[in-house]
Amino acid sequence: MEEIVDSFFNADIAASAMPIVIDGLLNTILLSLMVVPLGFLSGLGLAVMAQSKSRAVRWPLMAWVDFFRAFPPLVLLVLLFAGLPFAGLELGGFTCVAVAFMLNNSAYYGEILRAGIDSVPRGQIEAARSTGLSGAQAMIYVVLPQAIRNVMPDLLSNTLEVVKLTSLGSVVAVPELLYQARQAQSASFSPTPIVMAAVIYFLILWPLVRLLSRLENRALAGRG
């Protein structure tokens, strides 16, 4: 037992690894603050375009969404990071994460927001248009606020996944939380830094998980 505590929860190693791990945490936060808005906004763009009546617009969008639902984000990331240099384009780990996640998340956020827009009754747009609001104004002031509220649990759930996904940055040497913890681990030959990273992820994300669990229970109960 003592041995296990000594290797997984070693106070000395934790103390010396702390600055490195905290550094990683800051980068994880930075990365999240970048990829969440990027993914949300590009998803919003897709969702609005998906309202088009033209199949020539909707079908490619659906293909785009299905493609990224089928494609593992890590493969996309490696493709950009290890593949693009062969085309003379070296983007660096940070940019690769940003681009890969923007593509991947545009599909996920887009699908959620499309469902949200669909959930707003048609009469809302008609009422808005009948008072002279343009299509864009009706979308911005009337439809989107309701759409976003209707799918808030799904949006939050996806945001949780996006934040967790930033840990993939460690594969392409972005110094985020997991990467830094692994650096500290290989320097100290102890799993303690990885346990630290896990505890930090848990502490940061637990409130969101709790909130989601409540919202999801309520949502499903409402449908039953």
Partner: peptide
């Protein structure tokens, strides 16, 4: 409109 269509938000 028949169904009012007020903006609920």
């Amino acid at each position: 409109f028949q169904s009012f269509n007020l903006y609920p938000h």
